Simulated scan of single mutants.
Amino acid sequence: MKRNLYILLAVVILIGIAVYQNKGPGVQSVFQQEKALPTETGPKAGLLAPPFTATGLDGKEYHVGGTQDKAIMINYWASWCYPCQQEAPELHKLAEKYKDSLNIYGVNVTKFDNKKNAQEFIKTYEVNFPVMLDPKASLYDLYRGAVFPTNVLIDKDGVIQEIILGILSPKELEKKVKKLVKS
């Protein structure tokens, strides 16, 4: 009788191990506790993204902050910024490739630029994502922007995963985007 009990216990343990190793989202929640969302808001990785709503050049309103259907990349730029010009074609590709899981919002920091040059930049580089103007740099200041470009990566839960100052290689930027959309 004892021997049968030990065999049964071993079988149950092996089944448990097999299920755990082949877990999907439903099984994962049974074995792992969900990570609690931060409660503090601020322009820093690991905190909730400071919320804002801004109107794009297309006339639509765009909202950042809180839970979203897709991850968000905020791209702060200026038309005269050479690294921004280098990055623009890559952002175009990323916007197209990840359109089902990522929203890219361009923010032209118009305080350090002007609307006419921003519109010419959008046309020249075929920017295919919403662009907002920031005439007082209030959105830029909200995320403590320091250089152009500044990219803020925000997951679907509204948590900042990373703030990228300056330009990355296309390969490195896509690697970060892939990680972001999986989170």
Score class of each variant (00 low, 15 high):
Gln28Met: 12
Asp100Trp: 01
Ala71Tyr: 03
Lys35Leu: 13
Pro38Tyr: 03
Leu173Lys: 07
Thr110Val: 06
Gly66Cys: 00
Gly65Asp: 03
Ile164Asp: 12
Glu90Ile: 12
Gly16Ala: 08
Lys44Ser: 09
Tyr125Glu: 04
Leu173Glu: 02
Asn128Arg: 04
Ile72Arg: 09
Pro51Asp: 11
Arg3His: 13
Thr39Asp: 14
Cys84Glu: 05
Phe148Thr: 01
Ile13Thr: 03
Pro25Lys: 15
Pro50Asn: 06
Ile167Lys: 13
Leu14Gly: 12
Ala137Tyr: 03
Thr124Met: 11
Asp141Trp: 14
Asp141Thr: 15
Tyr105Pro: 01
Tyr82Lys: 14
Asn117Met: 05
Ala45Ser: 11
Lys123Ser: 05
Asn103Pro: 08
Val147Phe: 08
Glu172Val: 14
Leu8Gly: 13
Lys182Val: 13
Ala88Gln: 03
Leu153Cys: 10
Tyr20Gly: 04
Val181Leu: 06
Leu14Cys: 13
Leu57Phe: 06
Leu139Ile: 10
Met132Ile: 15
Leu91Ile: 02
Asn117Pro: 01
Leu142Gln: 07
Val177Phe: 08
Asn114Met: 04
Thr67Val: 14
Ala36Gly: 08
Arg144Thr: 15
Phe129Ser: 04
Ser169Cys: 06
Gln32Arg: 14
Trp77Arg: 03
Tyr20Phe: 10
Gly145Val: 00
Lys93Asp: 00
Glu34Trp: 13
Thr55His: 10
Asn103Trp: 12
Ala78Glu: 09
Leu8Val: 10
Leu133Met: 12
Val131Thr: 07
Asp155Asn: 14
Val131Leu: 03
Lys179Pro: 11
Ala45Phe: 06
Ile163Arg: 05
Glu40Ile: 11
Lys23Cys: 11
Ala95Phe: 01
Gly158Lys: 01
Leu168Gly: 10
Glu96Leu: 04
Leu37Trp: 05
Gly16Ile: 08
Leu5His: 09
Asn108Asp: 08
Lys156Trp: 09
Tyr143Leu: 09
Ala78Arg: 08
Val152Tyr: 07
Lys23Ile: 09
Ile154Leu: 05
Pro51Val: 09
Asp155Trp: 06
Gly106Asn: 00
Ala137Asn: 02
Ile154Phe: 04
Gly24Glu: 07
Pro170Thr: 12
Lys35Ala: 14
Pro25Arg: 14
Glu174Ile: 08
Leu9Lys: 09
Ile167Phe: 10
Leu5Ile: 13
Glu120Ser: 08
Ala137His: 05
Thr39Met: 12
Gln161Tyr: 06
Phe112Glu: 13
Val181Thr: 07
Gly42Glu: 05
Ala49Trp: 03
Ser183Gly: 15
Asn114Ile: 00
Tyr140Lys: 05
Trp80Asp: 04
Thr110Lys: 01
Met73Arg: 02
Ser138Leu: 15
Lys156Glu: 10
Pro43Arg: 11
His92Gly: 02
Leu173Ser: 07
Ser138Lys: 15
Asp134Pro: 00
Ala88Thr: 07
Glu120Tyr: 05
Asp113Ala: 03
Gly66Asn: 00
Lys97Gln: 02
Val109Ile: 02
Lys2Trp: 12
Pro130Asp: 00
Ala49Thr: 07
Lys93Gly: 02
Asn75Gln: 05
Arg3Asp: 12
Gln119Tyr: 01
Leu57Asn: 02
Leu47Gly: 07
Ala36Trp: 07
Asn151Leu: 15
Gly16Val: 06
Val64Gly: 09
Lys116Cys: 05
Val131Ser: 00
